[in-house]
């Protein structure tokens, strides 16, 4: 408890949960790449991770992930409130030198990501939004698997869905652009020489991740991926 009441302790838990969430995104992105293999690949992948064999570990992972997400949000909000209390105003006219848009908007980009996450789950996981183009609206593919490929392709053919997705990825990029390196710094990783390198690496990683995600709707819109 003493750990959590300490400002660094709170930040460390933020960093750890953030890293878990980021790693999840990386795994998610790797899964997404199967879409470029065509209908067969991604539908096989989707069925595979839903198969009974993987159910218990997957549920465990989901619980951990959900816990991390909850902690990340709760601590983030707490820190945001505490920090706002400590710095009610920074004067009428402030010029920032090192703090970028990314670091200064972490709380807000976090909220946006949360909002998008809910929408994203309602769409692709719970099929309650855009039900007409969700997986459950389509007949299984030739192998009898849920036709995720068709759902993705039809969804991103709609500019509004693709556009929202791209915007969300921009926000994810903004959040992780600072978040990845910030986590490492909070965990005490950087040394004198490695600090600037790690900072740059974190920014590159964040950009690559968001770009990777963005590739799917772009591919659909440009016709690279089609039915």
């Amino acid at each position: 408890m003493a750990f959590l009441s300490n400002p660094i302790g709170k930040k460390m838990l933020m960093a750890l949960t953030g890293i878990v969430l980021f790693l999840f995104l990386v795994a998610h992105l790797l899964g997404n790449t199967t879409v470029f293999g065509g209908q067969g690949w991604i539908n096989a992948y989707a069925e595979h991770i839903h198969s009974a064999m993987f159910a218990p570990p997957l549920w465990a992972a989901r619980v951990v992930l959900l816990a991390c997400l909850g902690l990340h949000i709760a601590l983030g909000t707490l820190l945001f409130l505490e920090n706002t209390k400590a710095a009610p105003t920074k004067g009428t006219f402030v010029t920032y030198k090192e703090a970028g848009l990314s670091s200064r908007t972490m709380f807000y980009t976090g909220l946006l990501i949360l909002a998008y996450l809910i929408y994203h789950l309602l769409h692709f996981t719970f099929h309650s939004v855009h039900a007409s183009i969700s997986v459950s609206a389509f007949p299984p593919d030739a192998q009898g698997r849920p036709d995720l490929f068709r759902s993705i392709a039809l969804s991103f053919q709609r500019p509004v869905i693709a556009g929202t997705y791209l915007l969300a990825m921009a926000v994810v990029c903004l959040h992780t652009f600072h978040g990845v390196f910030s986590s490492l710094q909070t965990l005490g990783l950087p040394g004198k020489a490695s600090l600037p390198v790690l900072k740059r690496a974190g920014q590159v990683l964040a950009t690559l991740l968001a770009a990777g995600f963005a590739l799917v709707p772009v591919a659909v819109l440009t016709g690279w991926i089609n039915l």
Partner: peptide, 14 residues
């Protein structure tokens, strides 16, 4: 630091 009312570090590096 926290008791005195200073905020926590967000690694802004300002």
């Amino acid at each position: 630091m926290q008791e005195e009312g200073f905020g926590a570090c967000s690694n802004h590096f300002e």
